[in-house]
């Protein structure tokens, strides 16, 4: 009887303790893989269903960028994601500053050297508006 109770207690408490220690594993993995010379700033978790073709990527987030800082945008996809995550970076006037999808090729990383301090818009979606699950990580290059 005692043996069963110990096993049950272990099964009950170990997952509870473990669950308190980590956030989304995809975020952890992506952030820690963004390179030794970068410092994590922010994650943008993106999960979308199938979308209709439209001129703009569906998810918008804002993020401040500062002059003379180099930022790294790392894009990672969940193992079961059907679509591949892409992003665009636009300044507050809507002018395109960077895109991870160039001539049909999706890049997993953009290094952006900022020369103009301000609020920027990050747009995320999956190629061809497919359903998908991924994360965009912004880190600061040291």
């Amino acid at each position: 009887m005692k043996k069963y109770l110990i096993i049950t207690a272990l099964m009950l408490f170990v997952p509870m303790l473990m669950s308190g220690q980590s956030s989304d594993p995809l975020i952890q993995k992506c952030a820690l893989n963004s390179g030794p010379n970068s410092t994590f700033l922010k994650d943008f978790r993106v999960q979308l269903g199938k979308g209709n073709s439209q001129p703009e990527l569906r998810v918008r987030q804002v993020f401040p960028l500062s002059k003379n800082m180099t930022y790294k945008f790392t894009l990672c996809n969940a193992d079961n994601s059907q679509g591949k995550l892409i992003m665009k970076l636009k300044d507050s006037d809507g002018s395109l500053q960077a895109t991870s999808y160039v001539s049909g090729k999706a890049y997993p990383e953009i290094n952006f050297t900022c020369k103009k301090t301000g609020t920027y818009n990050l747009y995320f979606d999956f190629i061809d508006f497919l359903p998908g699950s991924g994360v965009g990580i912004v880190s600061l290059v040291k």
């Binding site: 300044d91 500053q97 960077a98 991870s100 160039v102 997993p108 990383e109 290094n111 952006f112």
Partner: peptide, 26 residues
Amino acid sequence: KITFTVGDPVTVEKDGALVVKQTEES
């Protein structure tokens, strides 16, 4: 005063990643 000069970003590919440098400046 904070002023801005305009310019197009310069993008190159390096080691499989995109490297973008703004020419617009504050």
